[in-house]
């Protein structure tokens, strides 16, 4: 019965939405890259870089939105690097992605040590505060869960709609999707596959970094090593789980976050006290693998994902 009580409480769903928010940003970012035909394994490192740079900017005195912008730009720089190597040069997307993750993570740690040489506990910033949306917040259960979040969460949900609209309702979105499905057709239209893919990877990486920044600027108020902790890899699984569609990916992220919020609460019940806490911590990763297995049969993989394109080559 305890579990039922948990599932019906508004605070539980509020926590789930909060946990889902960074995943939504990063999953959307990865989705844009993959829709254009590029697997971006730089995601984990780019989230680390975003988490640090946004937080550091605010700690150095800029306002919170400027911090988000800084994270976005840092993510775009790493994305641009990834895209130059994988798109025009056609290098292995696996190797380059892992290389970008290593580079982004190590340069973040290097910068952290340079910026704060002597600290043992990292300083705190004043993070984004929850902002209640009048009227809506009074809806029972749903109101406090959805409409008393921080502005960054509202931005995440808005972006799902925006990305959906762009992908499915604009010529730009059509071009991006076509670059991932049938690049030769895009080239035949006189468009540059290289340009579309590079732009998609760069923008997508920017979103991943904002996802990272959510951790330091909204979920918590400080930067720790290993705070991203595999969330990037989980987002890659979420893209597959969502069949490369923003709406389904959003549902996946919320479902996933609900499980995570649930395990945190079950840990505190009498049932959970007898189970080693590591079992609970494993759940998100096991869940991701199960989700991948479940979806494997009806994968809607973009046909040209991980296939480099060269104009005129066949």
């Amino acid at each position: 019965m305890e579990i039922l009580d948990i599932l019906l409480s508004a605070s539980f769903w509020a926590a789930a939405i909060r946990i889902a928010s960074p995943l939504i940003f990063a999953t959307l970012g990865e989705l844009i890259c993959e829709r254009a035909g590029v697997l971006n394994l730089g995601i984990e490192g780019i989230m680390v870089a975003g988490a640090f740079s946004g937080w550091m900017a605010v700690y150095s005195g800029t306002d919170l939105w400027m911090g988000v912008t800084v994270a976005l730009l840092v993510g775009m720089i790493f994305g641009a690097l990834h895209s130059v190597l994988t798109v025009p040069f056609g290098l292995s997307q696996h190797v380059v992605g892992l290389g970008v993750t290593l580079l982004a993570t190590s340069s973040t740690y290097y910068a952290y040590r340079l910026a704060l040489p002597d600290v043992t506990t990292p300083p705190k910033i004043a993070p984004f505060q929850p902002m209640e949306i009048p009227v809506f917040v009074d809806i029972p259960v749903l109101g406090p869960a959805l409409f008393a979040q921080t502005p960054l969460t509202y931005l995440a949900f808005t972006l799902v709609v925006v990305v959906s609209l762009i992908l499915y309702r604009t010529p730009l979105g059509l071009a991006v999707r076509a670059a991932g499905e049938n690049p030769a057709a895009v080239a035949a239209q006189g468009l540059s596959v290289t340009g579309i893919r590079m732009a998609a990877v760069t923008v997508g990486s920017g979103l991943m970094a904002v996802g990272g920044a959510f951790l330091t600027m909204s979920a918590f108020d400080s930067f720790f090593f290993e705070m991203v902790n595999g969330r990037g890899w989980i987002c890659i699984a979420l893209v597959v789980f969502g069949s490369w569609r923003p709406g389904k990916a959003l549902l996946g992220a919320i479902l996933f976050a609900a499980f995570e919020a649930l395990q945190i609460r079950v840990q505190q019940t009498s049932l959970g006290a007898n189970i080693p806490y590591q079992i609970f911590l494993m759940m998100p990763y096991i869940l991701s693998i199960l989700a991948l297995v479940a979806m494997s049969r009806r994968a809607a993989v973009p046909a040209a994902l991980m296939v480099p394109f060269q104009k005129g080559a066949r």
Binding site: W233, I234, I236, V240, I286, S288, I289, L292, S296
Partner: peptide, 9 residues
Amino acid sequence: VDEVVTTLL
């Protein structure tokens, strides 16, 4: 199922 993600997880 893509082994990159599973081995990482």
